[in-house]
Design a protein around this nucleic acid. Sequence first.
DNA 1: CTGAAAGCGCTAACAT
DNA 2: ATGTTAGCGCTTTCAG
Lengths: 340, 340
Amino acid sequence: MGKQRSGTPTLEEVAALAGVGRGTVSRVINNADGVKDSTRRAVERAITELGYVPNQAARSLAARRADAVALAMTETDWRQFGEPFFSEIVCAVSDALAGTDIQLLLTLVRTDAERRRFVEYARGGRIDGVLLMSVRGGEPLPDMLAELRLPTVLLGRRSGDECASYVDSDNVGGARDAVDHLLRSGRTHVATITGPLDMYVAQCRLRGYEEAMRRAGHAHGPTWIVEGDFSEESGRRAMTELLGRHPEVDAVFAASDTMAAGALNVLRAAGRRVPEDVAVIGFDDFLLAQHTDPQLTTVRQPVEEIGRAMVRLLLEALEDSSRAWRHVILPTRLIRRDSA
Amino acid sequence: MGKQRSGTPTLEEVAALAGVGRGTVSRVINNADGVKDSTRRAVERAITELGYVPNQAARSLAARRADAVALAMTETDWRQFGEPFFSEIVCAVSDALAGTDIQLLLTLVRTDAERRRFVEYARGGRIDGVLLMSVRGGEPLPDMLAELRLPTVLLGRRSGDECASYVDSDNVGGARDAVDHLLRSGRTHVATITGPLDMYVAQCRLRGYEEAMRRAGHAHGPTWIVEGDFSEESGRRAMTELLGRHPEVDAVFAASDTMAAGALNVLRAAGRRVPEDVAVIGFDDFLLAQHTDPQLTTVRQPVEEIGRAMVRLLLEALEDSSRAWRHVILPTRLIRRDSA
DNA sequence: CTGAAAGCGCTAACAT
DNA sequence: ATGTTAGCGCTTTCAG
């Protein structure tokens, strides 16, 4: 019942008022060229006079496109959805789309039922393409969408050879930079708190840590590695574990700065000074460093660029129906806040 | 171009395969009654055989409804969008809508331009109703939507006499409970950190504080009240200010527990023990207490119920077009984590 | 450059 | 209980 109220003017009425045919009005509202300037202005006057707004349902039906893309969130753990990283991405994507007349639809796809619903929705023709955030290793949605031939762009990837378009940060490089930074400051007992290792992003960050350590000749074996789940709570647990195993630890690289914040709390509670006794760096998925602790050094991801790149890839895919996958890997940046 | 691929079966083909008329198929997919069971089954078989999915554009064009509602976020400060409170609301609303075949569209409306875009979108008939989160005092969107006669439900209200349907927490009562709790534990020097006082929700929580203090005979005047903006940073600033003004402060009620967390950090840095020296309670907009500090007592809002209530109000409004406003005020609950 | 006409796929009112 | 019909408001040929 929420439809345009019955008195809503139609394209036909605009045409009548402007004294032209419906085709012409259609051309004007679609910015098609081949319309005399004077005619165009007459139509535009009629449009504003009537307060005409095109009916999207009719438009999609006739044009066979929805003028909308979905930004879908497949994270099982709803709490992740609240992380600042995601809201930043949402804003970035929203901004990147602002120039177009494409509507952004945010959708949660947490369960199998929701996955089905979402695919139905897509099959119903209500979206032209999909941006997917936070894809776990086994996530089937990208493949389901590919089968529908729906243009799709992932944020991050499910594995090293992702068969879909994606935008990702240079996770290995960022982690390496972070650990190099710790090592340069004279630390040698560097531990790491990883993300869930079924996520490719977590594997990459661990790899960066290992590469940096090996190159510096400081590799300490698996007791210096604890797996977390990106949550602050898991950061606390991991740090407690690490302190138990290696009281001599003097630096920690955490795969997210949410976990870094957790580690920090534990260190302080244990009487360690940060960063004097123990330096901590987190990978800035979540920008929490800004909120939690000015002493935290972070590996910053270029969120705006990620959003822009995703939208660019998707728009390109909407143009060409050529099914080539595109990949963009964006560099990270180390932001120093402490003097570790 | 992302439309249903051209080979997509239509209702007509389903009808042909099932050997019935189009009207019958329509009735089946809409669960209308008055269809013989055997016929219904025949149609259903044809539907699965063809893999038929109704075209939504055609459906909304004919039925004059979109089968979609928007959950719009009008917060200017994007960071708010990342707060757990909002993600919880999103999940709650999403869940409440799961039973229906109504799609939830999340939308950001941060600027005037976006506000205009959103109204155009609504006027284009793409949504049947709107849920609005986080409305500030001067927010014009509810009125714009009312003018379109679009059913709308607010989360929170802009003032005491809101002219729209809304769901709100009992902010005054919750704040009073929190302060009563502090007073009962023997504290007398209770300060408060408010939210932005142009927000009604912040005014209410301040009122609750004042009422409780006055009733207990402990009102201390305006130097015990500092205005924040719900952010942790503002909580830190406010607490620093309070410690400067009143070193004897022994309890703090913060209008959000994000600010409570900030206050906590400052107190600890200043060498106060929490909750022994100073007890802190936050109004749990953001559920941060879970993440930040197990010592924090919080005023818990019934987020799931808020979501459910908003959806219920909206669905009712979609049924009746009678324009009566409905209001729901939900009670809060004090959750003790410390022994303050 | 512009008007007319033919649908897009579905719902709902009207027949039967 | 089910088939038939007339649109919903727009895009897009195809003529002119």
